[in-house]
Design a protein around this nucleic acid. Structure first.
Lengths: 209, 209
DNA sequence: ATCACACTGTTAATTTATTCACAACAAATA
DNA sequence: TATTTGTTGTGAATAAATTAACAGTGTGAT
């Protein structure tokens, strides 16, 4: 690890990747940094600086080739051992994620979902088989899943996290408001929806005096 | 505006607020910076520095008084003219947000939701009346709502945003993957679920070599 | 063929965010 | 009462992120 990669740069690279996918689908072959930067709401300099992380080079005259830049970013952010994702909790959040994921990520795949409700168990929801939560450890180990999404109520989030980590999970996306206690090697990202709205409310008002 | 307030500081203050609410419910009266910092996953110095934004002071011996610190943060982040929130789109994401919001935010209230599906219109879902999307402009203007959550498919996100902004919305929390084109005074926060998982996958693997 | 142009990649400067280091302080103890 | 202890608040130092400045380059016009 020569220099630490910041969260913000990765967030932006992932955003560029998204935009490039759209551009590719529209049949656009080349793009300049100022065009792509505008779509991503960043400055052209920042975009070019971010791309320095990749070993990819554009041309002074035709800018970046959409397909190869896209591949370069995918190559950079994609680690094959983290391609499999597990989802825990099939309430509204869980289902929303499953629906969004349907084909939207080329790199990652939710290959198993878990719930404690036997009504949902053994059904295939949004293309993904649902298992009982008690089966999670064995399936996660067998399939060697490393990434998990927690979409369960606050009260069971820590318990679920402990179980997942014990089974080998090293990355958690946590939609519950609960702060998780995890070992140092586990990466956790928090996505509390209430906090998100509060942030928006603050800055919207702040911007307008 | 003497010095610009950063997004990160506000995110942390909102997190502290959350934790303090929990502590208050547990009947805890006082807390030291190192204890609160640990719960929020920040350093004690950073916490104390963040609190410098507030005009609140702890005591060298008993630390911070939970109830008054909580009030100080609420006071700082709460702007009464941004208390009303509208929700557009009552699919899984929309319903998830409604459920989470039930009582979880003292400061903000979702007072109207909108959908184009007449099956949902005029029903009360999770304590919130659902109106047809065509009624949004008049209701937003009448109730003077300034904040909106977009939970509609990518294909209609821009159209919905335009309509909301026209009606007076100045802050948007966007759960669709669509980047929005908005005037300078409108604040937008993006919460794409697929990008979130991709970020977690990257950093989980990165952390573990 | 030469020039002007518009772009990229990158070093240097600047701004922003975080961490260090320590004075000031209130309570508990001797 | 004097001393010790463990904390807060903050100026100064450091680290990180962003922006500015510009050299290098391929293309098309003259």
């Amino acid at each position: 690890m020569n220099s630490k990669i910041s969260e913000k740069v990765i967030e932006r690279l992932i955003l560029y990747k998204n935009i490039l996918e759209d551009l590719e689908n529209q049949g656009i072959l080349n793009i300049y940094s100022h065009q792509l930067a505008k779509m991503a709401d960043v400055t052209p300099v920042q975009l070019r600086r971010d791309l320095m992380l990749l070993s990819y080079y554009g041309k002074p005259t035709s800018g970046y080739e959409v397909s190869t830049l896209l591949k370069a970013i995918e190559n950079f952010i994609y680690k094959s051992d983290c391609a499999k994702v597990a989802l825990v909790g099939l309430g509204h959040v869980g289902r929303a994620i499953l629906n969004y994921f349907q084909g939207r990520s080329k790199l990652l795949k939710i290959i198993a979902s878990f719930d404690k409700d036997y009504e949902k168990v053994n059904r295939v929801i949004a293309g993904c088989r649902c298992y009982h939560i008690s089966e999670a450890p064995s399936i996660i180990k067998r399939e060697d899943i490393k990434i998990a999404i927690i979409a369960v109520p606050q009260s069971s989030a820590q318990e679920v996290a402990d179980m997942l980590i014990e089974a080998g999970i090293i990355g958690i996306l946590n939609y519950s408001p609960m702060r998780l206690n995890v070992p140092a090697n586990v990466y956790v990202e928090y996505r509390d929806m209430v906090r998100a709205v509060e942030k928006v409310a603050f800055f919207a008002c702040y911007k307008n005096q």
